[in-house]
């Protein structure tokens, strides 16, 4: 935001806007006096239980996807190792090269930014 450097101190600010702050305070107090319908405890318990159940389902789903992905990757690795060893070693070499190149680029960026 602009003009941050020209801001008065907290005390100056409060004094300068005393009338405005007090008008805002009065208005907001009136808003606070409105009744809020607070549901009973059972409603809150039910809401929490539903939310906990939803979270449990979400975690199970995520774990399921993780296991399926892991099994898929593992089966591809094993398949290439046993059936296409040349491709397996080529992929391993490519993975090492990509990791080294990216690590080196990362270090270069850090040095540049310093």
């Amino acid at each position: 935001m602009k003009n941050q450097g020209n801001l008065p101190s907290d005390e100056q600010l409060d004094k300068e806007f005393l009338e405005t702050i007090s008008a805002l305070d009065d208005g907001l107090k009136k808003l606070d006096s409105l009744d809020v319908n607070t549901p009973d405890e059972h409603w809150f318990e039910r809401t929490v239980l539903e939310q906990q159940e939803q979270l449990r389902r979400k975690h199970s789903r995520e774990l399921g996807w993780f296991l399926i992905s892991a099994l898929f990757i593992l089966s591809i690795v094993l398949f290439t190792l046993l059936e296409l060893p040349q491709l397996f070693y080529l992929l391993q070499a490519a993975a090492v090269v990509v990791t080294v190149v990216y690590s080196y680029k990362g270090v270069q960026k850090q040095v540049d930014s310093q």
Binding site: L34, V36, T38, P39, E41, F44, E45, T47, V48, Q52
Partner: peptide, 24 residues
């Protein structure tokens, strides 16, 4: 620890404050 009754008490105690804040 996952106790839903404690959650319910906490929420019930803070619900009016939360709704009034959000209304503002």
């Amino acid at each position: 620890k996952g106790d839903h009754r404690s959650f319910a008490v906490l929420f019930r105690n803070h619900y009016p404050l939360l709704v009034k804040y959000l209304m503002k």
